[in-house]
Amino acid sequence: MTTVVVEALVKSAVLLAVLLTATAYEVLLERKLLGRFQVRYGPNRVGPWGLLQPLADGIKLLTKEDFAPAGADRVVYVAAPVLLMTTALFVYAVIPFGPEVELFGRRVTLYLADINTALLLVLGASSIGVYGLILGGWSSNSKFSLLGGLRSSAQVISYELSLALAVLAVVLEAGSLSLVRIVQAQESGWFVVRQPVAFLVFFLSALAETNRAPFDLPEAEQELVAGYQTEYGGFKFVMFYIAEYVAMITQGALAATLFLGGWHGPVLPPVVWFGLKVLAFVVVLIWIRATVPRVRYDQLMSLGWKVLIPVALGNLLVSAVLLL
């Protein structure tokens, strides 16, 4: 019993450290890549190739004044970023990074929990995360924040549906909601080959779920200053940002797990394959941000409700008929 608890604690600590470091360097990667896409250098002053930039940013933000705007709902104002970051990190309890391995003479699974409702848990956590956006927008007592919060809730709720419908096709193929079983079912072939339509719907929904360009309406800076997080600063702002960038990694991890064969791959160790797939997904997300202009709000809504959901439903129906 004690060893199980200790093992889970060690795994969680390692996971958190890796995840938060990856998030910090994801920001640097995005700034570097965006710089290159826009024919400039990007950050290159702090450390070699700007490698210490995330550290400098972190120290700067942590030492800023902790404030709340006048008329803000204090409790909710503080709770919103905490809620968003917690739910963003919570998902990693069920995401498998690799199979069982031999470490220090004992069998260790490279995931925290393998439960038979893992996929639903991931969807549930992301739907709880919406509260962070809405409450952050509402409690700031600012019209830009409120509009950003309303936009994000409408957007995230709409695209959650198409995301879930796309993912259901994978569940049909694998016959399980357990992420470990879904990865094991892809040993002979990735689901992106068997379910290309579902992958496309999943990809577009993931872009919208993470509030990334071209669907970054919740924080459209030309219209809303910075959306739901306009009135946030210092550490609370950091929490919002960590949640956003962790969400990108989460969607990459989900794409890898559900469609791209998870940890399966030749030659390299499984964990490295998983990391490479996630990295590729994140780079594509950044690339899209540098390439595609923002869509209009009504275009966003009609794409979600009139295109993605019917396509995902049709795909689910065809898959069900073919599989039965």
Binding site: T117, L121, G124, S127, I128, S153, I157, E160
Partner: peptide, 22 residues
């Protein structure tokens, strides 16, 4: 009842109360 618990979170906490707030 783990399935029921997760559904409770997704349907009630994740969808219905969000719409209330909205």
């Amino acid at each position: 009842a783990e399935f029921l618990a997760v559904l409770q979170v997704i349907v009630y906490a994740g969808a219905i109360v969000v719409l209330f707030l909205f």
